[in-house]
Design a protein around this nucleic acid. Structure first.
Lengths: 225, 225, 225, 225
DNA sequence: CAATAATCGAGACGGTACGTCACGTCTTCTT
DNA sequence: AAGAAGACGTGACGTACCGTCTCGATTATTG
């Protein structure tokens, strides 16, 4: 998905031996990716042109094509490279708070200029499997790993059922956000996030027997019916 | 959004009075819309060309442009016109069953050839607000109206809390489906739908016993089993 | 060789019936050909670009390619269309004078700006048989027809042998001009033309028995040796 | 015109002192020139690329550019280096036979694969004066020196007029060949050569009897038979 | 029934961006 | 210092669609 690595392109001789020939220009690479993000944020995916990227990056069109086979690949790589910080999960002692806080950060990004890039990626991904794969690998997966940890803490604390399907739970939490983000039928507000957490997490709590939060009870499935 | 009506185009003389001149060819209209859907399903939105539509529909390019101002409008209109049947909500006496059955129909569509069209629409909608609006109005809203009714029946039966936020609830049910549909990180199986319903709807069910945060304010029947 | 005719392109229905569709723009056609000649005269064949022609003619690049398949075809057609006037053969009563005068006109053209175009055509013709064919058909042949007439008058007058090989004779007269024009090893002066005529035509005269010019004697081959 | 000499390039220190550093690779030089000729013969001048030459010669592109400033220079040099043997003038005791035999050799070359190279050179020469100059110096001139000698023998033998303009005569003999070679309007056959010689040389032979316009001014032997 | 008017198909038009190719220059390591 | 390798910015290539524009032909209403 990303651009062909120098090593790939040259037959991977490895062992520290540099391949002959002029080395790839790091400056060009960075400039291209930066320009891509910039133009993507300005005009969306369909108005993004390779020609425009090359010009804005002060780079030959061939240089763009030398390393990225398509607009989609370029966009995916540019997006992947711009690893979004500030999307970590806090550890407040409450799953709901942890999740809620991270999800608030997410909708903040979705509503910012970067959101335009994300939606462009997702749109492009609908006709290019590499793009959507890049989104999954570079954006979704890393965060989901952290989310697993957060959920596990919740399980340990007894806030969530031990047998909870974590993927289902996470999709239930994030799905509504993505849906509103893409279909824009309702607003992405912090309150929405809070209520969403409350609704979904309560469905995953070890109820129905009331329990004081924060007192972990391990290894005991409880069922009423 | 849809094509300009004949009336609009002619200055809206209305009252049954037909404008002079050759009337619009219904055959061309239908052929264009059908070709649009066909080509959209074959190659996705980005490979759909007005030129291709015109040729496939055996129609002059100008005829397409005469009635639809842009590719997006054409696509939106074609999609809207193809109102999907078989997405009604049953009334089985159980919210969870009602919802689950309808959602199973939905994922069936999403996984079929028509799914390609839906994803193309959603993708196109990310850079054209008219397209996404058309999706909302023609596809989402009608079904949501039915969903409200289904939920209301559930409330009446005591399966759902009286104060439930129906939009939040519906987004929590459908959001995960859209997310998996678009990001393709996990499978859209009937089991997934069932578990999703169970998780979310249990979070919306009246608590059997008052919880720490937020006890039920209204007189609602409680169910244990 | 020339651009595809409208008729060809549309299946040649002939009989006055016009094909449907917007008719070809005569203005564009003329502008393109004119621009081609202009740019060709300025910078030679290798510096002539289709892009440049299109721009200079205020025309879309596709319009150029729609009618001329290659730069060579375009150049050939532009050249052919610019039928050079002032290359007629006079009738002075003397072959040598007739030929000499016409050949002087030719070298005048060769030494002018138009000469650049001719040499560009001949150069392009070395790697494109259509171009050289165009040169032959449009430029060489018409003049050669006139030349035949001139020579025949000379034969009738007894200035040339009756059995003279006219093609050989004409190549002997014009070949040296083309050679000097292309190889530029010696000058193309009027004197050169005169001496050339004298040399070659004397070789074609019905000598060796001296004869007063202007008294035709038909049907009698004379041989000394 | 030819490639820059090593001496030039290094500031001409002369006196046998070799410049420091790696000496020029003779192998590369030869390989480049050979590749040039080969590719030139295959596809003509316009399809010949520096890139192709470098690749075919297994040589770095920069190595080509280091020694030849342009494609034209390379071609001219390659052609010059390939001095065509077997174009000598015989001495049979008859000008016409001498010339005819050499000219037959020439058209044989023109009709062979080497002819393609010659026409490519002449074509390239139309937009690059260095190329045509190379052709003159390396190809035309050497042969013309020999031709002068042949003609002088003919004058001495009384086959040609003493005051004959040798350059005019030679252009009259070779011009038609070049013309047919480049314009391809008629065939280059041995018979053509013979007739050409007969026609032109008879025009240059001493007149047996003084003619009306211009009687011989110098004491020239006269031949009747 | 003729005149008027808007439609239709066809297809050429001036453009823009595509993705490729060769240009001539450069930067690296190797010989 | 020359060599090969190969990336670089540049610019033309020929193609595909864009959205607009004439055309002749067709099909309705209006006078």
């Amino acid at each position: 998905m990303r651009q062909k690595s120098s090593a790939q392109r040259r037959g991977e001789r490895g062992r520290g031996k540099r391949a002959p020939g002029r080395p790839r220009s790091e400056q060009a690479r960075v400039s291209i990716l930066r320009s891509t993000l910039k133009l993507l944020g300005e005009n969306g995916f369909s108005d993004l042109t390779m020609e425009g990227v090359a010009e804005h990056a002060d780079v030959g069109k061939a240089t763009v094509y030398r390393w990225w086979p398509s607009k989609a690949a370029l966009v995916a790589d540019a997006f992947a490279g711009s690893t979004t910080r500030k999307l970590h999960f806090p550890d407040t002692g409450s799953v709901r708070t942890d999740m809620s806080q991270q999800m608030r950060q997410l909708i903040k990004i979705f509503r910012s200029r970067r959101g335009r890039i994300v939606s462009a990626i997702l749109a492009a991904g609908q006709s290019d499997r590499d793009v959507i794969a890049a989104f999954r690998e570079r954006f979704l997966k890393p965060r989901r790993q952290e989310a697993y940890a957060t959920l596990r803490r919740g399980i340990a604390r007894g806030e969530l059922r031990e047998d909870v399907d974590m993927d289902l739970l996470l999709d239930s939490l994030y799905g509504p956000i993505y849906m509103r983000f893409l279909i824009r039928h309702d607003k992405l507000s912090p309150d929405f996030v809070d209520n969403l957490c409350k609704l979904v997490l309560s469905g995953a709590s070890p109820s129905p027997i009331p329990r004081a939060p924060g007192r972990p009870r391990h290894g005991i499935k409880r069922r009423t019916g």
